[in-house]
């Protein structure tokens, strides 16, 4: 558990996510990444703020929009890139792609591309932690769209019934693909619905890393005192299309919302708070790490035909 917000580290992780995904955009048209990519650009502050508040023993459940969660957890960047390239040194040895990242060492559980399906698994993991009296909190990232599913609420109900150590991180970018939240439910905030299930819930507006960090630290502190579930509804904006690298086809209002979000980019805010030297060093480090990861991916082999049947059953 961390109580002090480390701006330098926050800036580093944020930048590593942003530059990695910008690199994906840059390389996408070369067709080296033959995988759907769900970019987090615009939403990084959540992953960074949440991850900085966590410890090694905490468990991460993410989803198909998982690059930011993965990188913020300081999971293996080389392997992530190799996976995007479909290479055998990737996180799933090239068999999973961008939508199914995982890192065993970092307690980053393999992600699902079926919306909301990993939410009950996250609750089940939290149940096991409590059952085994084991250290740790489960973090379950999900979108606003995931709350459209019945299984989401069934899972919340069980988490609250059993006072499980879990934090649901709802990344509310207001869209499920092109469908705005208002077209999917009446104005009926996710936090209010979660509270009705007995889950303490807060909405965090402004898309600022520090705010997400503070809220997560606070939840962890309370969970350590008494096992219980929380939900943080993290308001954010996705700058790119749901999938792929393109800019969404937008109405004027939506366009303005994204422009507004870009003008409030927390990456810029964090940078302003750091001495110039640190900024330079961090930028250099990030550039090098991404270059190395891409080299790692490029120089890896594709899996051999003999690997086709590997890891189907234990």
């Amino acid at each position: 558990m961390n109580n002090l917000f480390d701006i330098k580290k926050a800036y580093y992780l944020f930048l590593l996510i942003r530059r990695s995904e910008e690199k994906i955009i840059e390389l996408y048209n070369t067709d080296k990444i033959k995988s759907p990519v769900h970019l987090s650009i615009g939403q990084e502050a959540i992953a960074v703020g949440v991850s900085l508040a966590l410890s090694e023993s905490d468990i991460i459940f993410s989803n198909y929009r998982g690059h930011a969660h993965f990188i913020a957890r300081e999971a293996n960047l080389d392997k992530m890139w190799a996976e995007l390239y479909g290479k055998s040194r990737g996180t799933a040895r090239g068999k999973g792609g961008s939508m199914h990242l995982n890192d065993y060492e970092k307690n980053f559980i393999p992600t699902s591309a079926i919306v909301s399906t990993a939410v009950p698994e996250a609750v089940g993991y939290a149940f096991a932690l409590k059952y085994k009296k084991q250290e740790g909190t489960v973090v379950c990232y999900h979108g606003d769209g995931a709350t459209d599913e019945g299984v989401f609420w069934e899972s919340l109900n069980f988490a609250s019934l059993h006072s499980l150590p879990i934090i649901f991180i709802c990344e509310n970018n207001k869209y499920a693909i092109y469908s705005h939240q208002n077209t999917r439910s009446l104005n009926n905030p996710i936090v209010d619905r979660a509270k009705a299930f007995g889950v303490s819930s807060i909405r965090i507006s402004g898309n600022k890393t520090k705010n997400f960090f503070d809220a997560t630290s606070d939840c962890i502190k309370q969970i350590k005192k008494k096992s219980q579930p929380f939900l943080l509804e993290c308001m954010t904006t996705r700058w790119r299309d749901h999938v792929g690298i393109t800019i969404p086809e937008l109405s004027k209002a939506e366009f303005e919302e994204i422009e507004n979000a870009k003008n409030n980019d927390d990456l810029v805010e964090l940078e302003k708070q750091l001495p110039e030297d640190d900024v330079l060093i961090i930028n250099k480090k990030v550039t090098t790490e991404i270059e190395n990861a891409i080299n790692f991916a490029e120089s890896s082999n594709f899996p051999e035909e003999s690997e086709l049947y590997d890891n189907v059953l234990a």
Partner: peptide
């Protein structure tokens, strides 16, 4: 299809 989930990488998809 062989008795495995579908791999994403083109190098294995072509054998799938």
């Amino acid at each position: 299809f062989p008795e495995t989930p579908c791999p994403t990488t083109p190098s294995l998809e072509k054998h799938f």
